[in-house]
């Protein structure tokens, strides 16, 4: 997902009886569906896990500007250009809401960025794949925003108030993105033979990386169990992946495109599709930094930050002068 393989305390979920009175009261509030707000007591593990999860999500939004930004200058019509600009702007806005949500937990945006730049925090693996044709912009909206929605809709009910509210705002925009992406795919799939070929090729390249977005199976993971008890994770990775496949297969059929999986078949018994797992060794390589675009993506973010240092310092210097002048005037 936008936050993949987020580690929690790693200790497994405590039984209510093993908890301190504070911890128990906290867990009971969560179990009752109450929201936890920034100033309230929370276990240190809850706070840290949320910082990791929200931070990774925020980083994904801003790194996610890059693969799509790659096609803004080449968008094929003025309308498509405007739609794509608006989308990329939304993604930056999502980054902003999420950094703000993380800041309520006592970490600054600059600290989080420093961790991204030094490789100590990750962003979603999906943004390490290149956008090679215009159809990739359609595929990203359709599949990547589609997968993001799968994860984020349940997170609207997450226990941490600021995170939940950020998700509610974000989800509205993500569904627009998905529709717009699908619309690009539709135009191309029904277009010239070359366009159709680009559409199929984009699906071929983005299918498995999209499935990887949900992360490897976590049904036995202690991290996930704790996160689920705290309601900062609502579904298992496999549940979300299954939902995503079930939703996407008919959409691909409607486009007249073929999902690149020979094992894809409807399973009447489970009421969902059987499908092939992505190549998890590729996923781990991408996380390690060996995806096709890791170096460019992180490099672009670091360069932007370093090249912009004078700008940020200049604004700070101005603000200091202003407050000094104000003080002198008093």
């Amino acid at each position: 997902m936008y936050a993949q393989m987020v580690k929690s305390t790693g200790e497994g979920v405590k039984d209510l009886k093993e908890m301190s009175p504070e911890e128990r009261a906290f867990q009971e509030r969560i179990d009752r569906g109450e929201k936890i707000e920034p100033k309230e007591w929370m276990p240190e593990g809850y706070r840290k896990t949320l910082i990791r999860q929200i931070g990774q999500h925020a980083h994904s939004e801003i790194v996610g500007q890059l693969p799509e930004g790659n096609w803004i200058t080449r968008a094929p019509t003025l309308e498509r250009k405007a739609i794509l600009l608006a989308k990329v702007q939304d993604e930056a806005g999502h980054g902003l809401y999420l950094y703000c949500a993380a800041e309520t937990l006592g970490v600054s945006r600059d600290e989080l960025l420093e961790k991204l730049h030094s490789g100590n925090m990750k962003y979603s693996s999906i943004f390490n794949y290149p956008t090679l044709t215009w159809a990739d912009i359609g595929a990203i909206g359709w599949l990547v925003d589609g997968a993001a929605i799968m994860n984020q809709v349940p997170l609207q009910r997450t226990s941490y108030g600021p995170y939940s509210r950020a998700m509610i705002r974000i989800c509205k925009e993500e569904s627009f993105h998905q529709r717009q992406g699908y619309d690009i795919m539709m135009k191309m799939a029904k277009g010239t033979p070359e366009q159709k070929e680009m559409a199929q090729d984009a699906l071929n390249r983005f299918w498995y990386p999209s499935l990887m977005m949900f992360g490897p199976s976590d049904k036995d993971s202690v991290h996930s169990a704790q996160s689920m008890a705290w309601k900062i994770k609502i579904n298992t990775n496999d549940e979300l992946r299954q939902k995503f496949v079930d939703q996407t297969v008919p959409q691909a059929e409607y486009l007249g495109l073929t999902i690149p999986d020979e094992n894809l078949a409807w399973n009447e018994e489970k009421g969902g599709y059987d499908f092939s797992e992505p190549d998890w060794s590729e996923f781990y390589e991408v996380l390690k930094g060996n995806g096709p675009c890791n170096k460019e993506r992180l490099g672009a973010r670091v360069k932007a930050w370093e090249d912009g240092a004078w700008f940020r310092e200049g604004l700070m210097a101005h603000a200091e002068k202003q407050s000094a002048a104000k003080l002198a005037a008093e």
């Binding site: 930004g69 990329v88 930056a92 902003l96 240092a309 700008f311 940020r312």
Partner: peptide
């Protein structure tokens, strides 16, 4: 302006640049 998308000195500027370009 759209060439700055994702490359500007702070997130607020990314947003403002995209907005102006739009």
């Amino acid at each position: 302006l759209s060439e700055w998308c994702g490359h500007s000195p702070v997130l607020e500027e990314d947003i403002a640049m995209a907005n102006t370009a739009l």
